[in-house]
Design a protein around this nucleic acid. Structure first.
Lengths: 247, 247
DNA sequence: TTTCCTCAATTGATATACTAATATATGAAT
DNA sequence: ATTCATATATTAGTATATCAATTGAGGAAA
């Protein structure tokens, strides 16, 4: 029996206000979150291949922890659609759901057309200079044929536009949505020639934002992302086991 | 020592194909998923009020299960932003992040402008009849002043348009994004007068889709959702403890 | 009264253990 | 060889246990 009254029970006529938030650290460096981040990186980079089984216990021993935090990480990845859990059977890296990729790109196009528009309406000079700097970094990566840096600058460019628009949460949503497209594209690695095309498409977007022309900015962004739709639907034949077949 | 070779180990030169998927039931009726669904309903319906503490053990005993499945449900809700976990402190129903609501509505507007456009391009006669039926159901609910049925028909109308567009996943994404707006609007209950306005705004959307006019359909949808932006920013003052203050 | 200190209780995070279901390898039967 | 049955190991799901961090009430000190 508790010698003291329990700290907080619901029965009262609605405490409602409740306690104010305490420490400002909402769940940072737990074992689960570290494992989640690691696994996610391995999944998007295709270090773990679609269809491959994943063993909770194996990962747990590898990290020197119990199954519990590993399971927490896996469940989160399952929500994101990166792994599939089959009860009493096993966990597997999800195959790439080819059928849903076009819809994903449509979503991205729709959202980024909006951010480009809003960016053209709200951009400050310093923000424009930052975007120019990012684009220049991308040109350097292109010249150096550094695919990793190029991709990183590419994401920064798009994220930067969302931030200039005043809606950084839109880019967070896009990140969540485009994960399967990223896995798909990782399989179509070569595309060195694409890098300069991408830059050539980024330039008019930034130019339109600079001209404060929302319509042009949105249109340029839309046509840039429409190229993505063309890119997919090429290499489905090789490595068919990585894809979720239309049956 | 295992008397038999382990079933599957990674070391081999990449098994790759792995096992085909077995039973088609990817995680259905676990205790965790039932608790998750229940809790989520309680959160969006504001049965559990923003700021209120949530006790894992209390829920566990209420369901007659251990803390483990409860924790799985809570973690998922935490990812969705419906609850906040403060380490070694407690779990609390998240306050409504008022500052992010406009962005959420912008996202929805952007995506649904797209679905309306695409619906106008692809709608078949039977699909149009279904949309008319849904709209009629909404009129009936309005006449009966049945708010719950009205809201249900409203969601069906929007979901139906996404489906006609050929991108039902867009509606699923919207559902995920608009949860805080729903909680907010639940606080502004009255709005009986709004019901007929909503119907009056739905009609031109459907009419434009019927006329196969993507531009008009997108514009009608956009202006419909812009009304949402006006609706918020009204009742922040009453019940301030439910909102995440801009400090 | 106000401030500080102490301490029991609760909590989130993790560890360990158990169970029912399932898949697969092995061996038997055809 | 091919099919079928059986046994065994692995698994997801859940239960229970441990621990350090934090809270907040009560009492001591000012």
């Amino acid at each position: 029996m508790p010698s003291r009254a329990p700290r907080k029970q619901a029965p009262a006529p609605r405490p409602v206000v409740a306690r104010m938030r305490r420490n400002g650290r909402p769940r940072g460096a737990t074992a689960a979150s570290r494992i989640y981040a690691d696994l996610r990186a391995e999944l998007v980079s295709l270090v773990r291949r679609p269809g491959e089984p994943i063993s909770e216990t194996q990962i747990a021993t590898a990290y020197g922890v119990s199954r519990t935090p590993v399971r927490e990480a896996i469940l989160k990845l399952s929500d994101e659609g990166l792994v599939e859990i089959f009860p009493q059977s096993g966990i597997f890296v999800s195959r790439i759901p080819v059928a849903t990729l076009p819809e994903t790109i449509i979503i991205r196009k729709s959202l980024e057309e909006t951010t480009a528009r809003m960016a053209a309406e709200h951009a400050t000079s310093s923000q424009l200079l930052n975007l120019h700097a990012t684009l220049e970094r991308q040109r350097e990566a292109c010249a150096a044929k550094d695919r990793e840096a190029f991709h990183q600058a590419d994401e920064m460019f798009h994220a930067g536009i969302a931030e200039v628009a005043g809606y950084p949460g839109i880019w967070k949503l896009i990140l969540q949505v485009k994960v399967h497209v990223d896995r798909y594209r990782r399989l179509t690695l070569p595309q060195i020639g694409r890098m300069s095309e991408v830059i050539a498409e980024h330039e008019p977007i930034l130019a339109a934002i600079e001209r404060r022309n929302p319509d042009a900015a949105g249109a340029a962004m839309a046509s840039h992302l429409e190229r993505l739709l063309d890119d997919i639907s090429e290499i489905q034949t090789l490595n068919p086991e990585y894809f979720d077949q239309p049956t």
